[in-house]
């Protein structure tokens, strides 16, 4: 029982990380109805470009974070204008194929440019342990949790409280009515996709400073993010947080009290249970599409 506080702390930290990395997906998946299989690759690009700006351009961590955010927003905007735009309104399958293709392209492009070696992103603070009673964490993890929470709150406010956010919600409720009301829906789609990409990339860079960045991490991130989004309910920020924390704590407890080797199974067991008993997810109110 004395291990419980540490397991819980590990689970909560991982939970925030999962929520953070799933945020971009829940936005794009939930609002735009694009099943973005390239999500993990945007996360990976965030880590790799984070390594590039801190290691090669010599920026400190936070300036690097801003540069990465800006450039990934641009990438997201372009991807939407030139690729997603072409399959919009044609149902989900073309989007799935497109993003799968995009993910293959991004992984191999990255392998070609920087190779498969794991890369280290210099963190913002030192890596030593901090002790709260029996619980050990690191400053870097606490910082990442703090930045993660700030990003989640920021994205929430952006969508709920700003004109752009209102335009987004209007566009995804009824694109026709929105464009009749004078909203430039093309820009709103692109802005939403750019925001999703930026969130994915920021979490990628943040977590790369704790673990490492590598060209082929994307697949696992995509899978876990889909688990979080399905648990929490599509398009719901509260759901992403709840789903992330649930997954993180469940994995920590299973790994702690049962076995580490099977830990990746937990997420999928949870998904099966959720789909059986509450298919709309924990937090989604809508059960059908608008």
């Amino acid at each position: 029982m004395d291990l419980f506080p540490q397991f819980l702390a590990n689970g909560l930290v991982m939970g925030v990380f999962y929520a953070l990395s799933a945020l971009g997906l829940t936005l794009i998946f939930g609002l735009m109805r694009v099943v973005n299989f390239a999500h993990g690759e945007f996360y990976m690009l965030g880590g790799v470009s984070g390594w590039f700006v801190t290691n090669h351009l010599g920026l400190d961590f936070f300036s690097g974070l801003i540069v990465v955010a800006a450039s990934m927003a641009a990438v997201g905007w372009l991807v939407d204008r030139f690729l997603i735009e072409r399959v919009r309104g044609q149902g989900e399958e073309p989007g799935i194929l497109l993003t799968i293709g995009l993910s293959i392209f991004l992984v191999n492009g990255t392998l070609l440019l920087v190779g498969p070696a794991p890369m280290k992103v210099a963190g913002a603070v030192a890596e030593g342990p901090l002790f709260f009673g029996p619980v050990a964490v690191t400053k870097l993890r606490l910082l990442a949790v703090a930045v993660g929470i700030a990003l989640i709150v920021g994205a929430h406010l952006l969508i709920r409280r700003t004109r752009l956010g209102a335009a987004m919600r209007a566009t995804f409720q009824d694109p026709m009515a929105a464009s009749l009301a004078g909203i430039r829906t093309g820009h709103v789609y692109a802005a939403t996709f750019a925001l999703g990409c930026t969130l994915a990339a920021l979490s990628g860079m943040l977590l790369a400073s704790i673990y490492s960045a590598q060209a082929s991490v994307g697949g696992l991130i995509s899978l876990k993010s889909f688990v979080v989004v399905i648990l929490g309910g599509m398009g719901s920020f509260a759901g992403a947080i709840a789903g992330g924390l649930l997954l993180g704590v469940a994995e920590a407890m299973w790994g702690g009290y049962v076995s580490m080797g099977m830990v990746d199974v937990i997420g999928f067991v949870l998904v099966i249970l959720i789909l059986l008993f509450r298919p709309q997810g924990l937090f989604s109110i809508r059960t059908e599409r608008a």
Binding site: F7, L207, M260
Partner: peptide
């Protein structure tokens, strides 16, 4: 204990190790 290829977070495993 065993962990899967590509695992990134070992804190849970290391908690057991510490104990």
């Amino acid at each position: 204990e065993y962990f899967d290829h590509g695992a990134t977070d070992f804190f849970t495993l290391l908690t057991k190790l510490r104990a």
